[in-house]
C-alpha cells in the first residue's frame, strides 16, 4: 500500500507502546508485541508509523522472502535476480478472515491450470520474512490460523506440505498483534508467544486529546507538509534505533542484573523461562537505546510490565490488573 504513514514521533503519549515497538526493532529476538486497547487509541497508526520509521534492509531483488543473500534464496524461487536492493523493512498485514492459502502460500492455481506447472505461490508468511507481521483484532483470528502462526513463529520456517507441494522457506518475523480485550481473550499459548504486551488507552488528559486530533487533522489535510515538519524527529529516532541496534549485543548484563530478572519472575510466578529471557532482552534493548553500557535496575523496571504482564499465572476469576501486580512485585523485589 502506498499510503503515507503518520510520523512515529508525532504520536502523542503512548510511551509504553512506542518503547516496546522500538525495543523489537533494536533486538528482533525479543519476539513480538501484543497491543491491547480500545478502538481509536492509535494502535494501527503506531504500527504503520513504525514501518515508515524502520531503516531499510538489503534483499535479493525479486525474492518473495526478502532473502539477504542470493545463497539464502529458496530453490523453488525462479523470479530472483542476482542484484541486491534496499527495501523498506516489510510490515505485512494479516487481515482477519485470511485463508490458510494466503497465509502459508499455496499451489499457483492459474499456472497449474494454464501451463500444467506445479508452482508455489508464496503467502503472507514469506512476505513478512525479516520484517513484521501485523494482525489487527488478533483475538478474533480463527483458531486454525493461530495454530499455524504459532508453529511458524517458533521454528522461523514455513514448511508447506499441501496440494502436492513440498517445500520450505524462512519465515522469521516479529509478530505484532492488536485487539480489544472486551471482544474476546487470547489463548494462553498465543499470549506467551508474544515477547511483550502493552495496554493502551486513549489519553484522559483533555489537552493531550486535543493535540492528537489537531495533529491528525493537520496530517490528513496536508500529509507532505506534516511529514516534513516531523522528518527531523523521525530521522533522529531512526538514528537512535540504528545506533542502539549496533551496540545492543555489547551491553553487559551483570550477574546481579540476571539475578534481579530471575527474582522478579520467581516472585510473580510466571510460567517457564521465556519471561526471564524476554525481560533481560528488553532491559538490554532499553539500556542500548538510552546509551547505557550495562543493564541496571532502572532498565529492568522499565521492561518489567511489558515483558511480564501477560505471563502471570492466570486465575480466570482473578482480574486484578496485571500491570499493578508487576509494579508491586518490582517494588517488593527491588525494595
Amino acid at each position: 500500500m502506498s499510503r503515507q504513514a503518520f510520523p512515529f514521533s508525532a504520536i502523542v503519549g503512548q510511551e509504553e507502546m512506542k518503547r516496546a515497538l522500538i525495543w523489537t526493532a533494536i533486538d528482533p529476538t525479543i519476539g513480538g508485541v501484543l497491543i491491547f486497547g480500545d478502538r481509536g487509541t492509535g494502535k494501527s497508526t503506531a504500527i504503520r508509523a513504525l514501518a515508515a520509521l524502520l531503516p531499510v534492509i538489503t534483499a535479493v531483488e525479486g525474492c518473495p522472502c526478502n532473502s539477504a543473500k542470493p545463497a539464502d534464496v529458496p530453490d523453488w524461487v525462479d523470479t530472483a535476480g542476482a542484484k541486491r536492493v534496499a527495501i523498506p523493512t516489510p510490515v505485512v498485514d494479516l487481515p482477519l478472515g485470511a485463508t490458510e492459502e494466503r497465509v502459508v502460500g499455496a499451489l499457483d492455481i492459474e499456472r497449474a491450470m494454464l501451463k500444467g506447472e506445479t508452482r508455489f505461490q508464496p503467502g503472507l508468511l514469506a512476505r513478512a520474512n525479516r520484517g513484521y507481521l501485523y494482525i489487527d483484532e488478533v483475538n478474533l483470528l480463527d483458531d486454525h490460523i493461530v495454530d499455524l502462526l504459532l508453529d511458524v513463529a517458533q521454528t522461523g520456517e514455513n514448511v508447506v506440505e499441501r496440494d502436492g507441494l513440498s517445500l520450505r522457506h524462512p519465515a522469521r518475523f516479529i509478530l505484532v498483534g492488536s485487539g480489544n480485550p472486551e471482544e474476546g481473550e487470547l489463548r494462553p499459548q498465543l499470549l506467551d508467544r508474544f515477547g511483550l504486551s502493552v495496554d493502551v488507552a486513549s489519553p484522559t488528559d483533555i489537552d493531550a486529546r486535543i493535540e492528537v486530533v489537531k495533529r491528525r487533522d493537520a496530517f490528513d489535510r496536508n500529509p507532505a507538509k506534516f511529514l516534513k515538519k516531523w522528518a527531523r524527529e523521525d530521522a533522529d529516532l531512526r538514528d537512535a534505533v540504528v545506533t542502539a541496534k549496533a551496540k545492543v549485543n555489547k551491553v553487559k548484563a551483570s550477574k546481579s542484573a540476571l539475578g534481579d530478572c530471575a527474582a522478579l519472575c520467581l516472585h510473580l510466578g510466571s510460567d517457564g523461562l521465556r519471561g526471564e529471557l524476554t525481560l533481560l532482552r528488553a532491559a538490554r534493548a532499553e539500556a542500548a537505546f538510552t546509551g547505557a553500557s550495562s543493564v541496571t535496575r532502572k532498565h529492568i523496571s522499565a521492561a518489567a510490565a511489558p515483558a511480564l504482564r501477560h505471563r502471570l499465572r492466570r486465575d480466570p476469576l482473578d482480574d486484578t490488573g496485571a500491570a499493578t501486580r508487576v509494579e508491586r512485585a518490582v517494588s517488593e523485589v527491588f525494595g
Partner: peptide, 12 residues
C-alpha cells in the same frame, strides 16, 4: 466518547 477517531471525524 473514548475513541479519538470520533472527534477527528467530527472536525472534518
Amino acid at each position: 466518547v473514548n475513541s479519538l477517531r470520533a472527534p477527528t471525524f467530527a472536525v472534518r
